[in-house]
């Protein structure tokens, strides 16, 4: 384990623990301005989309918009099934099957 990896872990621990401890440890004195709370509401969709899109359209850094890209097709299937059914686990399982068939059999 290099020092950089340990530093990464240490910083991630701080970034995770301070958020979880915020109210439990520091109590009710903590207040966010309403504008911040409203902005925070958009964070999950923005961040998760920003992570997913590059991995889906360019897995491994190589742009691939063809219908034979299992990451792209699998991501679209996961999104579509979840959008229709609202059942995240089902969507993940179905997309795994599609991804697996394309990746390992195709």
């Amino acid at each position: 384990m290099t020092d950089t990896l340990w530093l990464a872990i240490l910083g991630m621990f701080v970034a995770t623990y301070t958020v979880r401890a915020s109210f439990i440890v520091f109590g009710q004195k903590l207040r966010f301005p309403p504008a911040v709370v409203q902005a925070l509401g958009h964070v999950p969709v923005a961040v998760l989309t920003a992570i997913v899109v590059p991995e889906a359209v360019a897995p491994g850094g190589q742009m691939d918009l063809s219908p034979t890209n299992p990451y792209l097709v699998g991501t679209l299937v996961a999104g579509l099934v979840a959008w229709k059914s609202r059942r995240i686990l089902v969507a993940v399982l179905v997309s795994f099957v599609v991804f697996g068939m394309m990746r390992w059999l195709g």
């Binding site: 958009h42 999950p44 969709v45 923005a46 961040v47 998760l48 989309t49 920003a50 992570i51 997913v52 899109v53 991995e55 889906a56 990451y71 699998g74 991501t75 679209l76 996961a78 999104g79 579509l80 099934v81 979840a82 959008w83 609202r86 995240i88 969507a91 993940v92 997309s95 795994f96 991804f99």
Partner: peptide, 25 residues
């Protein structure tokens, strides 16, 4: 990636989250 896509998708049923996702994406 699949888990994240499945977490986002059900929220994309109103204009604002769709615009947020489209911009970020």
């Amino acid at each position: 990636i699949a888990t994240f896509a499945a977490m986002i998708a059900p929220q994309l049923k109103a204009l604002t989250p769709v615009a947020v996702a489209a911009t970020a994406g």
